[in-house]
Design a protein around this nucleic acid. Sequence first.
DNA 1: CTGAAAGCGCTTACAG
DNA 2: CTGAAAGCGCTTACAG
Lengths: 332, 332
Amino acid sequence: MGARLKDVADRAGVSFKTVSNVINNHPNVTEKTREKVLEAIAELRYRPNMTARSLRHGRSGFLALAVPELTSPYFASLASEIGAAAKRRGLVVLIEETSGEHEGERVVLEGLSSTLIDGIIFSPMATPAADVAARTEPTPMVLLGERGYPAGYDHIAVDNVRAARQVTQHLIETGKKRIAAIGAEHESGTGALRGQGYRQALEAAGHRVDPALMVGDVNYDRTTGARAMAALLDAPAGVDAVFCFNDLMALGALRTLRERGLRVPQDIAVAGFDDIEDGRYSAPTLTTVSPDVPFLAEEAVRLVARRVSEPDAAAEDVEVPFTVEVRESTAG
Amino acid sequence: MGARLKDVADRAGVSFKTVSNVINNHPNVTEKTREKVLEAIAELRYRPNMTARSLRHGRSGFLALAVPELTSPYFASLASEIGAAAKRRGLVVLIEETSGEHEGERVVLEGLSSTLIDGIIFSPMATPAADVAARTEPTPMVLLGERGYPAGYDHIAVDNVRAARQVTQHLIETGKKRIAAIGAEHESGTGALRGQGYRQALEAAGHRVDPALMVGDVNYDRTTGARAMAALLDAPAGVDAVFCFNDLMALGALRTLRERGLRVPQDIAVAGFDDIEDGRYSAPTLTTVSPDVPFLAEEAVRLVARRVSEPDAAAEDVEVPFTVEVRESTAG
DNA sequence: CTGAAAGCGCTTACAG
DNA sequence: CTGAAAGCGCTTACAG
């Protein structure tokens, strides 16, 4: 179809090696020759064949980003930021949706590797540490939002325990006594860590940790939040605040409270995690943990790019800064 | 790094042509040979080098999807569906964010072409028809959500005029008299078409089309909706309903109405367009136009794939089915 | 039914 | 400062 290196060389009256030198900014080209070549490139509208270049280099310039769902606002903004960070380094991101389920995530660990992909940025939901340890594929992989995974893998995450503790403390400080947690059913991963922070805060304040107040579901969506909130209200436990382990569940909880005619935060205070845009526009606006997503994205791309060029570099553990954003749902 | 075709051939004791035949399901391989080869592939954990294959075929198997923003819920679900539809055909989707601005969209028209990408699915916001007509790049391109673009390009869109007319009619039927439109400032593209449908409905019902009731901004986001609603309330025009040209603006408008203490739909009814998930959980839930996104995605991939294999096929114009979902924001 | 050759478009040592 | 050769891993005609 288009012009090839050789066509440019013919047009400019030089060897194609010289054209290659110009394109790749190598030295040993006189200014005059360079100009002739650039002119020929422009005239022929030449574009290097990336496929051929990849084959030669043994690298594709592609990164895979594996996330549960693109339609989850948090992961959409993560994907957007990672795409931008990759672009700055001349890399392209392929998005792989896992549904946050074990089968989809297994594909990421074992099946995504190919000459097509230089490295993987993986945000696991349902993958036990043992699966990661058992991985045999050579494609470099960086883990997002998780700790406790095998050594040798780079990690990037918010300190989930500390963040959850801070939000729970905030709820306690507003005078709430019966603080529930939605999303605490996980035995490992992010859910477990946030559950740990929640418990630490309660214990530090001398509150009892009541298992009846820890509910939820594996899925971190609106429906789960709405149902869990309803279950809490229907149980005899008695609740005056709820910390949802993500904003989507918090928005679901708000909907249930609205349907029941309960006032937020007077009757029940609500806090979330992620700081998605919807929470800034909900009624009431949502108190939440706000991680520094651009930082996270930049570091993820930096780490995976580094591991592509230095496969044996020591694994890094990067902590993502966060703030607790207090809004109407806890501070009427 | 990994095993090559030749390594598999050596292991199986056949020529690499035979291995190639097995991999590509070509005939002329005895069952016995085939088994030997498959065994060797498994033992060596061989995976074909996609880059080499692409170079040979002159096709990459990559589609670019150019959308304004991944963080917009509508485009996130569109991207998700298009990724799934592409996967079914063995294709991979690269997402390009344009910001919905002219410069970003110019890159899609002129700069995205390369051997890297077989075809482009483009959802334009700010690109005039003239720019599309002036395009010289050869990479196949399918246009989403738009009409009125030059012949020769495949289009896939909801009938925006009809959809907008139907929503406006619905507002009229609930007894509203002063129906505003937010997002109607566009002179071309989707905004213009929805504006046309809005006007047709008003005229058919004998209502006056009042320019003071047509407001908005180029950006179709929550902030625009919130501000436009505030401006309408502050003006002396008098409003009892508002049709927002997308759901995000409608959610922004709902926020303003809540802040002003106005009842929806009793004081002011609100309708949107897109049927994003947020609108099913907002307070009140949002009446909206719901396009069949999976159908849209499937057709987009089908059309671009067809154009890749048959560049001179006649351009198609596909209409996407839609329904008007009546919810609390118009039917208290 | 299987083998040897050519070539996709590029870059990387190596000569000159 | 520039040229000719080899090769990245694959597939596609072409022989045998």
